[in-house]
């Protein structure tokens, strides 16, 4: 048993996450010494502007990064086992595109909606709802099609097609919208961890928490699903029920995160593989915790890179995750010719 190795790894991951969290808060366009960062976290630092930056800007941003890392990676882990495909993930299977469509309908189509409804829809709640429904819609569609496919790799193409379809729809919507709406939507679609108020961060936290709790309930059935649907059923797993919980959980996770932070690529696909490679196991109890930590670490790291330490420059987070994520996936593929989920 590799338990001691796992314990050491978990401690490393935990310290790494804490370290990156502190680094993420400490680094940025305004240089604030680490000592002062701690002071403002647990009281107040020597400058009021520093307090303001830390508490109202950097802290919510770092928390958002952690939540995004948690949620996207876990939904990737669930989907890889459910679809028996190591390359599955919320972005690849078109969930993020579905969310985009939901958000696009809200942002670009709010003008057409009657007063109160329109007003509600552009609020955080409306965008979250539309986004979750969008990803749910695509996931259910992919699932329905995948039921009729024997080849599990074909579902990636199905996801891709649904992605193109929804993107095309978004394109049509964009064509008929005003410059102001379009700008708002474009900024959203580039992804952004910052600019979230504490209210938004709390809403996101609750959504991610619900998604994660639902996911925890599927840990045991997920282990059985490693043997395939028929074996899982013979082990007493209620397959339909498990499938439904996974659908709801991933839709909430991917939907709410995409609503607030924009479509973020590769985290859901790559992070579970980091956990699988590091821990060399398929046990979902271990993988779940490992994926959480890796997800948080990767997102914090991407966030640190995106704000380009020492400069005023902030790059869109989606660009960073893709620049880092795409080569990682290719490297993973090459490293493991026989790609194991």
């Amino acid at each position: 048993m590799a338990t001691t190795r796992h314990t050491i790894l978990f401690w490393l991951l935990f310290s790494g996450t804490v370290l990156l969290f502190v680094a993420d808060i400490s680094l940025g366009s305004v240089t604030i010494p680490v000592r002062e960062v701690f002071k403002s976290l647990f009281g107040s630092s020597s400058k009021e502007t520093w307090d303001y930056i830390i508490v109202n800007y950097r802290l919510p941003k770092a928390i958002t990064a952690v939540l995004v890392g948690f949620g996207l990676s876990i939904s990737g882990l669930l989907m890889q086992t459910l679809f028996r495909n190591p390359l599955a993930g919320p972005y690849v299977l078109g969930l993020s595109s579905g969310s985009s469509l939901g958000v696009a309908l809200v942002i670009l189509g709010s003008a057409v909606m009657p007063g109160i409804v329109g007003h509600f829809m552009v609020s955080s709640y409306g965008i979250i709802l539309a986004s979750c429904l969008g990803s749910l819609l695509v996931l259910v569609a992919v699932l329905l099609v995948s039921k009729r496919l024997r080849d599990t790799s074909a579902i990636l193409i199905v996801g891709l097609m649904f992605g193109s379809f929804t993107n095309a729809f978004v394109g049509v919507l964009a064509y008929f919208s005003t410059a102001e709406q379009l700008q708002k939507f474009t900024f959203w679609s580039l992804g952004n961890l910052g600019n979230l108020s504490w209210t938004s961060v709390s809403i996101l936290s609750v959504s991610v928490l619900i998604g994660l709790l639902l996911s925890i309930a599927t840990i045991k059935p997920l282990d059985a699903l490693l043997l395939g649907e028929n074996y899982a059923k013979s082990l007493g797993i209620r397959y339909q029920r498990t499938q439904r919980i996974i659908i709801v959980a991933t839709s909430i996770l991917a939907g709410s995160i995409t609503a607030f932070a924009g479509p973020i690529a590769f985290i859901g696909l790559a992070v579970p593989h980091m956990a699988k490679l590091a821990f060399q196991t398929s046990n979902h109890r271990v993988l779940f915790v490992a994926t959480l930590f890796f997800g948080a670490m990767v997102m914090l790291f991407c966030d640190i890179v995106s704000q380009v330490p020492g400069t005023d420059l902030t790059l869109p987070i989606n660009a960073i995750t893709s620049i880092i994520g795409a080569p990682v996936v290719i490297w993973l593929l090459l490293r493991k010719q026989r790609f194991n989920a």
């Binding site: 082990l235 699988k276 989920a341």
Partner: peptide, 17 residues
């Protein structure tokens, strides 16, 4: 079996579910 990292022991252990 679908692709996974399961060892023989882990595979047998799933029988205890």
């Amino acid at each position: 079996l679908p692709p996974s990292n399961l060892t023989a022991w882990e595979l047998v252990a799933l029988g205890r579910q």
